[in-house]
């Protein structure tokens, strides 16, 4: 026995696309909770850890589209004709075909974006033109070309000493949470000290300022622990000017690629009472909306239950 369920698309508008999904044998609304998990656990773990049912996802998409609206109702506001008739702009009213086409176009952003996506998908079949995020994040070729000859054995640099007391020959490792491919690279390439003056500026701006008092103290008082590898602070040096030029010359990402990704933190989504906005402690057994207590649940049950899901 199968049932038909509307799956949310990746795009934010609801298109009536149907697909077949195996029935898990529970009531339609309960499909949100994985069947193996007990009922109570499902209530305690809000949002089902990202496993929202298609109905819930669709409701969210609809809600977001609702928030994106300009007016609550669809209204047509025509451009007032009063100004058009006055023909004040007659001297240069030589509308070209291009601009007439643009001015008469009633396309929305959604239409343009769909066109763009279609064009990109077509281009991707033949050649990849505009880079996507995943491709950009590992610029191996970029680095190879930009730092051809490196001075491997790096001598200790006086400027860096205030932050990194004793630079070792190894490329400085970082504790920053960047993609690992780049960390060593960023440090290594500037180890070559191609652009010392640039680095000096960088330091003066980024690190020196705001805590100069503390910095001065660091440089003045030397302690026996300066060389302790555990106490060393690893601030990577700024990339060279050539890398910066390469970065600046990159083409823009596409509209969709520049959208911020999901949050990295593993915090669970919070649930709120759908009536009063307080923490949603209990979940309605019918529609899975949350309420804070029996008072709000009563209101919900009497008036709004089933309104959304």
């Amino acid at each position: 026995m199968y049932r038909i369920e509307l799956l949310p698309g990746s795009s934010s508008h609801v298109t009536p696309g149907w697909s077949y999904v195996p029935d898990r044998g529970v009531g339609p609304a309960k499909a949100a909770i994985a069947p193996a998990v007990g009922r109570k656990r499902g209530i305690r773990e809000p949002g089902g850890r990202g496993n929202l049912s298609s109905r819930q996802s669709n409701a969210i998409i609809r809600h977001l589209a609702e928030l994106d609206r300009e007016n609550h109702k669809d209204v047509q506001i025509p451009v007032p004709a009063r100004q058009r008739e006055t023909a004040a702009r007659a001297p240069r009213a030589k509308t070209t075909t291009n601009s007439r086409r643009i001015l008469q176009s009633q396309k929305t952003f959604r239409n343009y974006l769909d066109d763009e996506e279609a064009a990109l998908a077509q281009a991707a079949q033949t050649t990849t033109q505009r880079p996507s995020v995943s491709k950009v994040t590992k610029p191996t070729n970029l680095r190879r070309s930009s730092t051809p000859a490196q001075v491997v054995a790096s001598k200790p640099e006086p400027k860096r000493q205030k932050k990194v007391p004793a630079p070792t020959t190894a490329a400085p490792e970082t504790t920053l949470s960047a993609s690992t491919g780049k960390e060593g690279k960023g440090g290594e390439s500037t180890e070559g000290k191609e652009k010392e003056k640039e680095k000096g500026r960088e330091e003066g701006e980024g690190e020196g300022e705001g805590e100069d008092g503390e910095d001065a103290a660091n440089t003045l008082i030397s302690s026996p622990f300066d060389n302790d590898p555990l106490l060393r602070s690893y601030i990577p040096s700024a990339p060279s000017e050539r890398i910066m030029q390469a970065l600046l010359a990159e083409p823009p990402l596409t509209y969709n690629a520049s959208r911020a990704g999901p949050s990295a933190s593993s915090k669970l989504p919070r649930g709120f009472c759908c009536i009063c906005g307080y923490w949603g402690k209990i979940r309605c057994k019918n529609c899975h909306l949350r309420t804070c207590g029996l008072g709000c649940y009563k209101v919900h049950e009497d008036s709004r239950c089933g309104a959304f899901f």
């Binding site: 970082t174 920053l176 960047a178 780049k182 960390e183 690279k185 960023g186 440090g187 500037t190 960088e202 701006e205 980024g206 690190e207 601030i235 990577p236 040096s237 700024a238 990339p239 890398i243 970065l247």
Partner: peptide
């Protein structure tokens, strides 16, 4: 971005 730019 290169980690060297993060502080600035």
């Amino acid at each position: 971005l290169p980690t060297g730019l993060h502080p600035s």
